[in-house]
Design a protein around this nucleic acid. Structure first.
Length: 281
DNA sequence: AGAAGGCCCTGCGTGC
DNA sequence: TGCACGCAGGGCCTTC
């Protein structure tokens, strides 16, 4: 499930194989993703050189010659797959909805079985004004994201902190997994009302958010030799989380006597949260 | 107006 | 073994 660290890793992998290269082909196999592919996508990409990459929240932006940027969201199940064009199988790759090919013979496909992902074009000079980016909150890894900033965003919110942190308007790029992990690290229950996290608890929470994201990006980068795996997949691997999907297991944060009752799974706004009821309050 | 739930989609794990 | 069902969740949309 691509959240901010996975998107960052995939983006770096894409940059590795695409940056500076000229695209000699682009193709659409199936246009009905989350939103239809934009008009002129193939035309604008074909022949253009890839200038650079950038990430915003869970979105990747690929700047190309001619003033356009390709906006990519991986959705739930999206992957980027890179192969030498010559090594591609003859039959169509399952769920590869979109692909690009470089002058030096690399084929990059966007594979997304669930089709929650999306691709769009936006003027490079106005990337942040795209409707999907315009309302996003601060980047959690930037210095501007401080305890004070989060504190203000949470003030007066009656919703559980779990839901608040998933709200991309408050902070951009966190998903279900890293919200659970960051709350676990900072000893805050996902059920706690957001307004009561404002203040001193944000002083613990904000560094925990940054740490969990940074460690994950570092692990993603170092675990991938070449950013392109044997199967052609670019990007993320399954990390070992401290609470996410670990219901019933002991919480490593609180050893000792009496034994930790273990990590619990609860459902909040229809989504699973994992936490240790003993040390997360 | 803010919050909660629905919906889109396919693959996979579980249980009968 | 096979099938049915439920769950996974990002983000927009509708409803309350």
């Amino acid at each position: 499930m691509p959240e901010l660290p996975e998107v960052e890793t995939v983006m770096r992998g894409l940059a590795r194989v695409l940056e500076g290269r000229r695209l000699v082909a682009a193709s659409i196999a199936r246009p009905d993703m989350r939103w239809p592919f934009p008009d002129g996508l193939v035309t604008r990409l074909t022949g253009a050189r890839v200038l650079g990459f950038r990430r915003r929240a869970k979105y990747m932006l690929m700047r190309v010659e001619g003033g356009d940027s390709l906006l990519i969201h991986l959705g739930m199940s999206g992957r980027m797959v890179a192969r030498r064009a010559a090594d591609r199988p003859n039959e169509p790759v399952a769920h590869e909805h979109f692909a690009m090919e470089t002058e030096d013979g690399t084929h990059v496909g966007f594979v997304d079985p669930r089709r929650f992902g999306s691709v769009d074009l936006v003027a490079s000079a106005r990337e942040d004004q795209h409707r999907l980016l315009a309302g996003l909150g601060p980047e959690p890894l930037e210095d501007a994201f401080t305890a004070e900033v989060l504190s203000q965003a949470l003030a007066g919110k009656r919703t559980p902190i779990k839901a608040a942190l998933l709200d991309q308007k408050l902070v951009a790029g966190l998903g279900n997994i890293y919200v659970s992990e960051a709350l676990h690290r900072s000893g805050i229950s996902p059920r706690r009302e957001a307004s009561t996290v404002a203040g001193s608890r944000c002083v613990r929470l904000v560094p925990a958010i940054k740490a969990v994201l940074e460690e994950s990006i570092a692990a993603g980068g170092s675990s991938l030799r070449d950013y392109v795996q044997a199967d052609g997949g670019i990007g993320f691997f399954q990390e070992r989380f401290r609470v996410y999907d670990r219901a019933g297991l002991a919480c490593e944060q609180c050893p000792g006597v009496p034994p930790c009752p273990g990590i619990q799974r609860i459902v909040q706004s229809g989504r699973a949260s994992f936490y240790c009821p003993r040390h997360q309050r």
